[in-house]
Nucleic acid binder design. Structure first.
Lengths: 225, 225
DNA sequence: CCCTGATAGATTGTCAACAATCCCCCTTGA
DNA sequence: TCAAGGGGGATTGTTGACAATCTATCAGGG
């Protein structure tokens, strides 16, 4: 994954609690700790080489992000996700990323727009090669969405999507081993979104982004019913 | 405020950390701890009668909700909010509550719709009395929005709006002593939104809700430039 | 007079021990 | 055989002390 798709707390964070938060989050999102895993505090503290104090602070933060489920006096386990949850998340993505696309069309700098266009070209080349590009497509898709979100220049929106929603989306992808099952169509939709942004048509950009995510949701619904 | 607008952790939560989290959140949102206040851990621990362990867990959770700003090794202070932040939040509200209204039109039970209509009638009566109903209008407005959000029947969306966004909105309202400066118009807009929901027109409900929140945002922008 | 650097105090970060709660399982009785 | 109750063990919740870091103050030199 490229750096632009990363938001983990940098490895040299000043406090143990921040570091263990970042490491624990990665272990959850990337699947090292499968969903439903019971997380004993003593065991985890040993695993990360910290005491239970900082660990519990990290757990409370990950609980806020819905990556962990905690029951008082009982314990904490990795969030176990149902398909219906993913569909709910896609409704939220449709709303938020639609707004992000609108704001990106209005607020992105010309340099940012050029970079986005450049990214699309790379994806189209990979597509032409017909290689096994599933991994790169998957992360490339995220990269595309990340850039538009950042382009909204709305800090609240960026933090919500990248800080809270996308970790869940990534966890789902790893959990279900979801490969992009409509890469050709998705690429075309990306192209039209960029065109709308280039012509600074916020309304059109929002419409296209919403349709793009809505179709992805329908695709999920079709494969899980 | 009516119970439906409350989501605070109930007072008899099982753990100290949960209780202090709820109390600290109320103190921040309701203004007992003004924005910018430096929060010393020892001092706070004494105030709430707990040790620093549970307190720090509560702080980390409130930091996730953007109610607190923390700098490692320096300290924690109550989030100090700029008008531009509020405008960013209203963009997010426009997107999320628009979606909520759409889903509410599709998913609300008939009983929920009837309750919403009942609530509107109460607000219209208060309006007719021409009393000093600023407080009730303000909280009543929140109640209206809360109900539609709940009516979406989308747990992810509900948690996002009520668990993370609305605390910030309420804090702003207290902080800026914002009184509804267009109650008449807002009430009319509420009525049209309910009509759309009653006729199960999700697209129209979303459009009207977005316009409603967008106008509130423009109103804020006009008063802060 | 202003800038630099060291020091002292206070505050935050971390840890390990103690207390409270829950869960499992076994006994006991119908 | 099965249900109800209690006890042991393990896990979580909480605390107070110790260590690390920052900030404010003040002395000294330019």
């Amino acid at each position: 994954m490229s750096d632009s798709a990363q938001d983990s707390v940098s490895q040299d964070s000043r406090t143990l609690a921040d570091r263990v938060f970042a490491r624990l989050q990665d272990d959850i999102v990337l699947g090292a700790l499968p969903p439903g895993t019971k997380l004993g505090e003593t065991e985890l503290a040993a695993r990360y080489g910290v005491s239970r104090g900082p660990l519990r602070e990290a757990i409370r933060r990950l609980e806020s992000r819905k990556l962990l489920e905690r029951v008082p006096h009982v314990g904490t386990r990795v969030a176990s996700l149902k398909a219906s949850d993913l569909i709910e998340i896609y409704r939220v993505r449709e709303a938020l990323e639609g707004m992000a696309a609108r704001l990106a069309a209005e607020n992105m700098t010309d340099a940012e727009v050029a970079g986005l266009r450049e990214l699309l070209s790379q994806h189209e080349q990979q597509q032409d090669l017909k290689e096994d590009t599933a991994y790169f497509q998957r992360e490339g898709d995220l990269d595309f969405h990340y850039r538009i979100i950042q382009g909204s220049h709305n800090r609240t929106l960026i933090d919500l999507l990248i800080g809270e929603i996308y970790h869940l989306v990534r966890m789902y992808r790893y959990q279900f081993s979801m490969t992009a099952n409509r890469p050709q169509k998705a690429l075309g939709e990306h192209r039209r979104i960029i065109e709308a942004i280039e012509s600074r048509d916020g309304e059109m950009a929002e419409l296209l982004m919403r349709r793009h995510i809505s179709r992805a949701r329908e695709n999920i619904e079709a494969n899980n019913t």
